[in-house]
């Protein structure tokens, strides 16, 4: 199963901009490489990453084969209220991983 690492500051103040870092293990096979027998290795990538904050989408990335294996993103959001951040990665061959992180806003 895919392993995701998420870094969110667990306590912030209202209105502050928080930086979020995410990393997920995935080979991101481009579909342009060939095996030693010359056969083309089929594409297997993550196509979409979405981050929602208490149900509202705050960030989305549409990925192409030019993103490295184990896609890593750093982005930010404004801390509005305490709640959960949901991260969802979807891709080829039915790949789908959802992770959550709690955020406390003082």
């Amino acid at each position: 199963m895919a392993n995701a690492l998420i870094n969110v500051p667990d306590r912030t103040r209202r209105g502050e901009i928080v930086e979020i870092k995410t990393l997920i293990s995935h080979p991101m096979e481009t579909g342009y490489r060939r095996s030693q027998l010359g056969a083309r290795i089929p594409r297997d990538i993550i196509r979409l990453f979405v981050c929602t904050y208490n149900g509202t989408e705050v960030f989305r990335a549409e990925l192409h084969p030019a993103i490295t294996a184990n896609p890593f993103f750093v982005f930010s959001t404004v801390a509005t209220e305490s709640g959960t951040l949901t991260f969802q990665w979807t891709g080829d061959n039915g790949f789908s991983v959802t992770e959550t992180a709690a955020i406390t806003v003082d």
Partner: peptide, 13 residues
């Protein structure tokens, strides 16, 4: 809602 428009990632060239 992003607060600032700054994003980082890693790419292949």
């Amino acid at each position: 809602r992003a607060g600032r428009a700054r994003v980082s990632t890693r790419i292949r060239l």
